[in-house]
């Protein structure tokens, strides 16, 4: 139970959700929860379950889309809507599809959508790096394991899920709370904040890589990113390198010890 003081404060601060009445978001969240519950694998399904889930899901998506803000131009909006739609729809498909291989493929589609969103947000390097790292390396390994472990057919544990309704509602509640807090963004920025940003901009030395960047979309994107990465975040980079190395060693160590244990127990090794 939420403390009433906190609730009233949230309500006061929430302002509006996406410039629309909160009714829209309530509809979006509840339909999303219902559609997820209908779509998640439950073992026993009526033949109308999935169509109903699709319809409710479409309603939820439409409500979320209506809750979105207007961008600069209609073209920009269309492109953003397209990539966001790809990302969200295929993310949903990832978690509701029965076949794990299809789940991995849908996740690859999600990656494509996310990478599109990142490109629109001006993170060219990250958009492409996401594809290279996730789709090119991580997901291929997942697919390898999936295909080797379960070359065909549908396992019983892929046809059921544990507590679909509870988790769908949990997800919906999370989205609802997050959108309420996102709604606070529509509050106007105090004038001194804007002025502070403006002075920070003008005071920053022109040749410094850590200066406030006017527009991350253009102007030597990768070079600035690299400067920032190996300037301000050098120690973090080193730590990440160590982390990667440790993960490599750890993975190999676990594999080899597992093989040794399997040999000792007389189980087949691969």
């Amino acid at each position: 139970m939420l403390p009433s003081v906190f609730a009233t404060q949230l309500m006061a601060e929430a302002g509006s959700v996406a410039g629309r009445p909160g009714l829209l978001m309530a509809v979006a969240v509840t339909t999303a929860a219902a559609s997820l519950w209908l779509l998640l694998p439950k073992g026993l399904e009526h033949k109308l379950t999935r169509p109903a889930g699709f319809i409710l899901g479409a309603v939820a998506l439409a409500a979320f889309a209506l809750a979105g803000r207007r961008l600069g131009s209609i073209g920009e909006e269309a492109v953003f809507a397209l990539v966001a739609l790809v990302a969200v729809v295929s993310a949903t498909a990832t978690i509701v599809t029965r076949s794990p291989v299809y789940a991995a493929i849908w996740f690859a589609m999600t990656l494509a959508g996310v990478s599109g969103v990142l490109l629109i947000l001006g993170a060219q390097f990250l958009g492409v790096a996401t594809i290279v790292v996730y789709a090119g390396a991580i997901l291929v390994m997942f697919l390898f394991v999936l295909m080797l472990a379960q070359p065909s057919g549908l396992a019983s544990y892929d046809r059921v899920s544990s507590e679909p309704m509870l988790s769908a509602i949990a997800g919906a509640v999370l989205v609802g709370l997050l959108t309420i807090s996102i709604g606070r963004l529509s509050a106007p920025v105090p004038a001194d904040d804007v002025e502070a940003a403006a002075t920070a901009e003008s005071d920053a030395p022109a040749d410094s890589v850590t200066a406030v960047v006017p527009d991350p979309l253009f102007e030597n994107h990768v070079a600035r990113l690299g400067g920032e990465l190996f300037g301000r975040h050098l120690i973090a980079v080193e730590a990440a390198g160590v982390l990667l190395f440790v993960a490599l060693v750890g993975a190999i160590a676990v594999v080899t010890r597992g093989e040794a244990a399997a040999l000792a127990e007389g189980r087949p090794t691969r």
Binding site: G15, S16, G19, T30, G176, I180, S186
Partner: peptide, 12 residues
């Protein structure tokens, strides 16, 4: 509670 919260939110 959350739906109530959302419904109680005033318009933009």
């Amino acid at each position: 509670a959350m739906v109530a919260l959302l419904l109680a939110v005033p318009s933009h």
